[in-house]
């Protein structure tokens, strides 16, 4: 247990149903359905997943979805733009929370 995150542990994702196989199966069915070609293409979904993976700081998902995007022929520019969407969203969410701060300041100020 030398490291918390190890690259080879990505392969263990297939076994997350261990100790709760029924829930695991339900999760994988859902995951598979949500990510496959639909009204949005698998490419578009892979880009969304990549943006989520970076905003959520998940090294496994970043690895998996960078590879998935490459496999689906997504260009570097498209990937980087997706990351910027995530980044701009996170920045916006942080700044939107300043509303709370500003409301408090205004209420307290003389």
């Amino acid at each position: 247990m030398a490291d918390y995150y190890e690259q080879k542990d990505l392969a263990d994702f297939a076994h997350i149903g261990e100790y709760a196989p029924e829930l695991g199966k339900k999760y994988f069915d859902y995951y598979g359905e949500a990510l496959k070609d639909g009204a949005l293409s698998a490419r578009e979904k892979a880009l969304i997943a990549l943006a989520v993976a970076t905003t959520q700081h998940c090294p496994y998902c970043i690895d998996a979805y960078t590879n998935q995007c490459l496999s689906l022929g997504v260009s570097q520019e498209e990937m980087m733009e997706a990351v910027h969407v995530g980044s701009a969203m996170v920045a916006g969410i942080v700044l939107a929370h300043s509303t709370q701060m500003r409301k408090i300041i205004k209420k307290k100020e003389m």
Binding site: D37, S41, A42, R43, N67, Q68, L70, S71, L72, G73
Partner: peptide, 18 residues
């Protein structure tokens, strides 16, 4: 189509549409 790097190709159907 061949991947341009050290990764596997994606699903043929998706790539063909693209």
């Amino acid at each position: 189509h061949n991947p341009s790097g050290a990764y596997l190709p994606g699903l043929q159907n998706s790539l063909e549409n693209h």
